[in-house]
């Protein structure tokens, strides 16, 4: 796309500043002295035989989907004009992701959950806000199970025309129609390329 950048100098967070799950629990130190840690402080204290057969026991616990999961899904989407992710540009923020009912209140695996994601464009007249919203919506619809309802909006006051953008993003027909457009579809695909 041949045009000037709308916001040439956005604030960019480094990857280490982004919220992530590993830092919530006990931190694993990576100092210069940590090289032998895997041997002298092994993850599984019993190295022989059966009781340590699975390496990934820690991760196998059952944890329902929470806001951080949603954040991890969408924060890696690329921005359409900067070579950074939405997480780095703070377009997507962890506190602006809401699950209702919250994971703790879930009654069963099939109960209906609504995911509300509020986006904050880097500038309040960003013309790409709709595209970003569309990409977030696509990503969530492609990765969440069918019992999740997705609602993507602009955060109140963050965009000059947030009402209109919200209306576009909330209208299923318009979203579907938008994705019929080859140019838009390609753009969204490009943005989602960085997601794993």
């Amino acid at each position: 796309m041949e045009r000037d950048l709308e916001n040439a100098n956005p604030t960019i967070l480094s990857v280490s500043q982004l919220p992530s799950r590993s830092r919530k629990g006990t931190a694993v130190r990576h100092g210069p002295d940590a090289k032998c840690d895997s041997i002298v402080y092994p993850k599984h204290s019993w190295p022989y035989g059966s009781s340590s057969s699975s390496d990934e026991e820690d991760d196998d616990g059952e944890e329902p989907m929470d806001e951080q999961d949603i954040y991890d899904l969408i924060s890696t989407i690329s921005d359409p004009e900067h070579p950074h992710t939405l997480g780095q540009l703070s377009v997507v923020r962890l506190p602006d992701i809401h699950l209702s009912p919250s994971p703790a209140e879930l009654t069963g695996p099939d109960s209906l959950v609504t995911v509300l994601v509020e986006l904050t464009p880097t500038i309040n007249h960003c013309s790409l806000a709709t595209v970003i919203g569309l990409a977030v919506r696509c990503r969530l619809e492609q990765t969440l199970p069918p019992n999740y309802r997705v609602d993507v909006r602009m955060k109140v006051g963050s965009h000059a025309q947030d009402d209109q953008v919200n209306k576009q993003l909330g209208d299923k027909e318009r979203v579907a129609a938008a994705l019929e457009n080859d140019t838009l579809q390609r753009m969204v695909d490009k943005m989602l390329e960085t997601c794993v």
Partner: peptide, 9 residues
């Protein structure tokens, strides 16, 4: 449906 599996991995 499996995308809503109880285990994160």
């Amino acid at each position: 449906v499996a995308c809503g599996d109880p285990a994160r991995k």
